[in-house]
Design a protein around this nucleic acid. Structure first.
Lengths: 212, 212
DNA sequence: ACATACCTACGTAAAAATACGTAGTAACCT
DNA sequence: AGGTTACTACGTATTTTTACGTAGGTATGT
């Protein structure tokens, strides 16, 4: 009985050439894997996917022209037989949730070893899903109940935007006509929900999520 | 006359394992290059550099514990025979200027091809400098006449990046081996120079100016 | 020598924020 | 009715940061 090696065909998508080609160089050392193509943004990833029919699209999130999240949603609709494995530097739980909802089969951080990436590729190729959530497990489970995009309430978002605009709790309280103690409570709740502990973290979050 | 191949010894520094190992895999295909070690932050990069004596440290900027800018400044002082080639996603001109002042021999974006990276490595190994400034040429030349773009000193920029990464004054002091009182003083000076009064303002400034 | 810039560090006092709890009210849903 | 969520607010204790000054040491430039 002849032994047939079926290679997992992978399309590699990342706008950073060094990163993309570096990962490709490594993957091509693996006998069961074939890198069949490259793309530098989500739009080209979609075109190439339809053309090349990879088993797995290994894709970054942040890219010009079209990012990984949008491309994932489109691929999931137009080419559902193709699995999307997201490669990211970020482990924000709400991002992971969005990607799951968009139809991604997996998510690994660029922090992980190649062994873990290979494992993810194998598991996804078997039709399962692989989400690397070790570091985010607590934040992630806090998120699941709310389900809908932002973990913050409307009021919390208002308070956060004030904080991130540099207002003290006192000034925020005055502007919103509430007690400073209420601002402090909101602040605690916000920090807990988004998993940060400092004003710098709050500010970054607000900037990244368009609150200011 | 026998032909002697002298390999360029490279230490690879990046906190993202996939990125680092991917680039290493590619570099090791090149006969004239030997990857002699790895590090995941600036501090370890400094230790390994002294220990392994690479010709070139190929290093990312944004990393935990100690970033590339700070490590570059330290290496430039303590191991000036070692060249630092910065790998980055960002092409902010004031970053490039800071890195030049800190003693970096080169700067390439993760956008560039491996051919260009190899070219940069060769040029730097010959003792020259290589700054990939094609996309930033106009912004960069706008910076040169003013010369003193940032109102902040090198040390202040280091302190600010720690603050904006969410570290307390206490943690910053510990990491930089200075007194917490010194951190407070730097903080006051920074706030005065850039005209903000809050941590949120500091964080925003740092983000906008590529310090983190 | 003198001046300047930078890094380091402190005294004093006060303000601000954090952390960990508690709880009331209103609106909504089952 | 009971449960949940969101908004409001507090007690207590502690930590952290701020503000406004002070000043020494080193390196550099004139």
């Amino acid at each position: 009985m002849p032994s047939i090696v079926v290679k997992t065909r992978i399309l590699l998508v990342d706008d950073h050439v060094l990163v993309r080609d570096g990962i490709a160089a490594y993957l091509q050392l693996e006998e069961s894997i074939e890198v069949v193509g490259y793309a530098e943004n989500g739009l080209i990833a979609i075109e190439k996917s339809k053309e090349l029919q990879p088993d797995i699209v290994l894709m970054d999130i942040g890219m010009p022209v079209m990012g990984g999240l949008e491309a994932t949603a489109i691929l999931s609709k137009e080419a559902p037989e193709i699995n999307v494995l997201i490669l990211s530097m970020h482990d924000e739980p709400e991002y992971i949730l969005k990607l799951m909802q968009a139809g991604a089969s997996g998510y690994v951080l660029k922090d992980v070893s190649f062994d873990e990436l290979l494992k993810a590729i194998k598991i996804i190729d078997e039709g399962k899903t692989y989400f690397s959530v070790t570091a985010s497990k607590q934040q992630f489970s806090n998120l699941v109940p709310t389900a809908e995009s932002s973990p913050l309430t409307a009021r919390e978002s208002v308070v956060l935007s004030h904080i991130a605009n540099g207002l003290s709790n006192k000034s925020t309280a005055q502007q919103l006509n509430i007690s400073i103690r209420t601002v402090e409570t909101h602040r605690q709740n916000i920090k807990q929900k988004i998993g940060v502990t400092t004003t710098a973290g709050l500010t970054k979050y607000a900037l990244e999520h368009g609150l200011i």
